[in-house]
Every structure is written in C-alpha cells, then in structure tokens.
Amino acid sequence: MDTLPAITPAPAANSPQSLVLEASHVYKSFGSNHVLMDFNFQLYKGENVVILGKSGSGKSVFIKCVIGLLQPDKGSIVVLEQDITSLRNEALDHLRAKVGFLFQSNALYDSMTVRENLEFPMRRHWLAGQQRNSESLVQEVLENVGLAHTINMMPAELSGGMRKRIALARTLILNPEIILYDEPTTGLDPITAREIGNLMLEMGRKYNTSAVIISHDMNCIKLVADRIVLLYDGKAYANGTYEELRRSQDNIVKQFFE
C-alpha cells in the first residue's frame, strides 16, 4: 500500500467539535458477501462528510445501519449519544425523528399530495400541533426549497429535481440534527445536481444540521464535502478533505479522482 492520506478529521464548521455520530468496528455481511469489516466512522457537529466508494461497497448499507433499517452484525453505532443498535420501538422512533434520511429514489408516497407527504412524518412522530401549526411548517419548508406552489400537486406531476427538493423538504420538516443523503444527485442533469448540492449546503446552514452524504458525483462532492471517507474493502481506507485526497499518491485513492 502506498502512503495514505492523513486519517485526521478536517476541522468542522463548529468548534469545539462534538461527535454526533460514531461508528466503531462495524461488521455487516449478507451471506458470504462481507460488506463492512471493521468500519469506523465519525461525524462532528456541523460537518458534511462524504462516504466515497465503489458501487456495492457498502456505503448505503452503512447509512441504513445508522438509521436502524439494517442491524450490523457486530460493532456499535452511537447516534446523538445513543447506541442505535440497542434501541427498539419508541426509543428508536424518537431518535429517528432527529435523523433525516434522503433516499436515492426520493421515496415520496405516490398516493399522497406534496402536503400529505410532508405532513406524514409530523403526524407519525406526534409532532403535529406541537410548537407550531403543521400547515405553516409545511408552507415554510416548501418555501425554503423554493417549491411553495407545488403543495397540492402529486409526486407524479413533479420533475426529478423537484421531487428531490420535496424529499429534502420532507426530511427537513422534523428539524433533524443529522441528515443522511443516499446519492442525492444520481439521475439528475449537471445543472440540477449543482442546484441540489447548493440547496444541501444552504439548508445545512439554515437548519444547523450535520450530514453524511453518499455520492459518486465528484462535482457534488467537491461542492459539499468538508471531509471525505473512502470506503474500500469494508474499511475506512482513507480520510481527508477533497484536496488532500485529490493530491494523494495512493493508487486506490487516485482511481476515484482521475
């Protein structure tokens, strides 16, 4: 192995740094396919960390473990000071309200309007009626993503970029502390992809969130990443800023930046 980039996290936006997500020695296999093997990961408050890796390398599996959709075989994942692998039912739902997940396919409910899509997580987490009127919250979050006029439209009537924005709005409506983005710009044209990247940054600042971003889109990564973790052979192979990894002489790291 050639010289690896430094495994020191780049300074996050906020200081002093506080860990909001820490995965330690995580293992996950599907039959004989060992996806994560002793994977370690840290996310600090206010930070945007991109996980980069080949298709099928386990990036999505990891963030699904973070939100509790999958259980790791071994290891711990501490999210906002709670080990998600040991949480069940209400405790897990309570934590999930603080962690947003933007799905690769957007996962908007086809049978509901945009308004109902946005209200759904609020109703399910019993937040409707708390703090503020849900109607004004829906309106506000839609205005933030620039799509207030779509409130009564069905997802099928929206373009790919609009759906992504609505999916982001649905993620933001619970005011999460962490957002997990699963390939947020896949399938979008370069201009829309850039708009989504900028929106992610803008919303991150506005809602004061930290983010884990899975992406192959180097333009998006360059735009949003405070730090990049390269997932290779089930492990965190390299860790550094975009520029640090781009200048790396390691053959494996170089493949991703060529």
Binding site: L69, Y109, H125
Partner: peptide, 9 residues
C-alpha cells in the same frame, strides 16, 4: 417508500 415509512416512525 416502505423504508421511508419506517424512518418516519
């Protein structure tokens, strides 16, 4: 969408 439902509590 089923996964999205699960993460929505």
């Amino acid at each position: 969408q089923i996964d999205a439902m699960e993460v929505s509590g």
